[in-house]
């Protein structure tokens, strides 16, 4: 019975795979050239890197909702009742500690660089947040603690929603300035995007860090 079910699954998935390949090969008509549209409007987006312009200006609504999704995971994880939390166990590994002493400051520098360079080259809030979260994990592994003790999970909550709150605030601000929600006035767009990205970096780094067990 089990073998028959397995064979049915394999056969079905083979059919699905062939159909998908057929669909991919036989896409009808040329796809709309969005790259051209983006580069045409790049001048009024406030940044010169097309990917950042799409993420935080042209399709900022998508990114806003993504940040909201990113908030759900740590909040649900925090709502789960846990038995005794695992005690932090500092390692005495001198290699790890020496590595952390060199790598953590470098990672902080790299995160700031990635955040700022996002306006003109590859980089941005998501990359900076990933590097920042990585630095926190390394610090935790080497020293047994990373965030300061007064920053308890409850007190982390304002920081956790900072990115989303700034995003919404800037969106409403651009509405008040005569545009529409998240439609930044071109003169202010560069500053607004930098403000949003700075908040996002902190919030996303904390969210990614809290996903870690």
């Amino acid at each position: 019975m089990r073998v028959v079910a397995h064979r049915l699954i394999v056969a079905g998935c083979t059919v699905v795979g062939l159909a998908l390949v057929y669909a991919v090969v036989n896409v009808q008509g040329p796809a709309p050239d969005l790259a051209l549209a983006v580069s045409g409007a790049l001048a009024e987006s406030g940044v010169s890197h097309p990917v950042t312009a799409v993420l935080l200006n042209f399709r900022a609504y998508d990114t806003l909702l993504e940040v909201a999704v990113m908030l759900v995971a740590p909040l649900v994880a925090a709502a789960l009742p846990t038995t005794a939390p695992a005690p932090a166990k500092p390692t005495n590994d001198p290699v790890l500690q020496a590595l952390a002493a060199v790598a953590v400051p470098l990672a902080l520098l790299l995160a700031i660089y990635l955040l700022l360079i996002g306006a003109s080259r590859s980089g941005g809030a998501f990359h900076a947040a990933a590097v920042l979260a990585g630095a926190l994990v390394l610090l935790q592994l080497a020293t047994g603690r990373s965030l300061p003790a007064w920053l308890t999970p409850t007190r982390q909550q304002p920081l956790l929603i900072l990115g989303l709150a700034l995003f919404c605030a800037v969106g409403w601000l651009s509405l008040l300035l005569g545009g529409y929600f998240l439609g930044y006035p071109p003169a202010w767009a560069g500053v607004m995007i930098l403000v949003i990205e700075s908040g996002l970096t902190l919030s996303l780094a904390l969210a990614l860090w809290r996903l870690m067990p």
């Binding site: 969005l34 042209f58 998508d62 993504e66 990113m70 969210a207 990614l208």
Partner: peptide
């Protein structure tokens, strides 16, 4: 394509969440 790149970036972050 920058739009596809932005969509994929969003997708990667949502997948890890």
């Amino acid at each position: 394509d920058p739009v596809a790149q932005a969509l994929i970036l969003t997708g990667i972050v949502v997948a890890v969440a």
